[in-house]
Design a protein around this nucleic acid. Structure first.
Lengths: 195, 195, 195, 195
DNA sequence: CATGAATGAGACTTCATTCAT
DNA sequence: CATGAATGAAGTCTCATTCAT
């Protein structure tokens, strides 16, 4: 009959996302996360192995959600390759509109965590990439997308660009309004800059 | 006996670039940098204010060089907008081909340092961005580039994409060969993926 | 439903003996003892004041049993001084044959607990020593034992030797088989090593 | 031209011996050792890997010294088996007379450290035991010592007894004066208690 | 009596930085 | 200028103990 049933882990995760977003993973102190989550410092270790495990679980959650959504898009036979492509871009944006702090953590710490403990990094990231690849492949096969491009490179190109822009939006939303970013990204990737 | 004179600062900088590339800024120890540079740990503080100052100077040097090169390109009236655009892409690539470790530091730590002490961050980065903007503006004015895009967004789009790809190349050069990356980037940005 | 009644304290004590034997007092965690005893961690504090109290009660039980047995031996007028001496040695061995883990705790932790909280240490230890002293005194008075020796020293000599050997037996029973140890101890103490 | 050359490590070791003797290894805090040694807490880690390494080095030093002395005794062809035996007992006593605190650490912590990290435990202990064995073997071969005893058991018997007595002496030197202990030990081991 | 989630004091250890030489 | 031993603040994590249920 625990009153807070299932809430402490979430509280900690949310506090961590907020603090990681504000000061970065390395400057975020466990004691501060605990304070923000309204729990004792030691309690964090009831839910997480160590500090890095918090970050790992943040990414696991993000990528799990993104992956599941992308799967729906990929398997939706009513959508054209370009529809799917647009939906894929929207997907990422939508999730981060919900939680701008998550965007910050996502863009700033993924490199760190992925290099630091690649073996523990969420499997959903890899699955997501593969599904994204499938969508692009389908576009090429259906002659909607050019076949002049390497899929690996294209994939990283797109996500690198998005990541960078989300980061700037999170810091300075006025110069980089989200809808404009979204439109611009879709436009460039489709048509390029050539007039 | 003046052979090494004036080299210590450079030695430290090079050692730092190497180590930051390998393990990241936060896990790089001053004592290790000193060892790699062949100087005493204390000597680092003769040339740099503190650990962050090393990173700051690395970025200052990079962006200074890039900026000066971009200025030449921008002011070269023999080049068409697309020539200038290509040259700008090449510029970044060329510098990192020289020093792959620099690429790693560049892509992994710029966010950190830029948010951590924005007031100290190199002025050349801003100058570089402005010059890049000028090149794009010129392209738009000369009706070479589309005017459907926001310049700020385009700029971050391009650099985000490049940064991400350089990072992947540094980790896994076989899957992401540099020349292919370069060609693909130029192609997408110009023409997009639509067939 | 009174089947287990009164057993929890014993369960905890047995679990503690096992764990203390395996990893030592300081590395034994209350939570692990609880798990091994099949009770909740908090329940341990219903039966014991604190962690040290568990150890105290283990020693209390051991020494109480040993003391009572020794009293019987001491007061058995049918036994010669050497019979009593042998019985005293056997007594200790017999108790530890029953429970090797107890031997480990006994030999490893007695020093610690005796120094840490001497005021709480079991009274039966002191009583045991006094009874042992009586047996030796009787042997001297009856001219069975030499009177060249200090009783205090002899007492510690014997128990130190036994403790050390029990410890080695517990770790490596093949090199130190219990019966051989027992015989050897009796022999040395009686006759010494001189041929 | 360091003033304190080579002294800090010794200061720390001596402070650690003192504190380990007083409160035991587990209750001894690094910060307290540092304070007693007159160094900063962090400085301890310039000389020792971690807390356990301090204990390891204490034992390494003790056993190294004992072993070297025992070697001299063993190889001294002027000594009879009993002379050698007596010298061996004296050896241990002499070293601990110099430093009673060392005796405490020796008797209280050897079990702990030997079980905790046996792979790191000093090699000199093993060498010492082997040399001690040789002396006993020689005594048996020369028909000075009885051949009714197992060497392994005898060896542990002797050292267990000595260790226990040293411990009591360290706690309560009046009841257990060192010379008396020494004499008694030699007597019992030679002749036993039988009159 | 029993539980076990929660606590929080406290320990070890790291490492950027200093400063006497 | 150069050194590198020394510093000590600060951070992560552990675990005996408590207490609301």
């Amino acid at each position: 009959m625990r009153v807070k049933e299932g809430n402490k882990e979430k509280d900690i995760l949310e506090a961590a996302i907020k603090l990681f977003a504000e000061v970065g993973y390395h400057k975020a102190k466990i004691s501060k996360i605990a304070e923000m989550a309204g729990v004792a410092a030691g309690s964090i270790y009831l839910y997480f192995e160590d500090k890095e495990d918090i970050l790992l679980k943040i990414f696991d959650e993000i990528w799990h959600r993104i992956y599941l959504e992308l799967l729906k898009i990929k398997n939706n036979s009513n959508l054209s390759p370009f529809d799917k492509f647009d939906a894929m871009i929207d997907l990422i944006f939508d999730i981060y509109i919900e939680n701008p702090n998550l965007a910050m953590v996502f863009v700033n710490e993924q490199n760190h965590i992925q290099r630091s403990t690649p073996e523990k990094f969420t499997v959903f990231y890899e699955k997501f990439l593969l599904s994204g690849e499938d969508i692009i492949k389908e576009g090429i096969e259906k002659h909607a997308f050019t076949n002049n491009l390497d899929i690996n490179i294209l994939r990283q190109f797109i996500f690198g660009a998005i990541r960078s822009l989300l980061q700037h939006w999170a810091i300075d939303p006025k110069t980089y309004p989200l809808n404009k970013i979204r439109q611009n990204i879709k436009f460039i990737i489709k048509y390029g800059i050539e007039k």
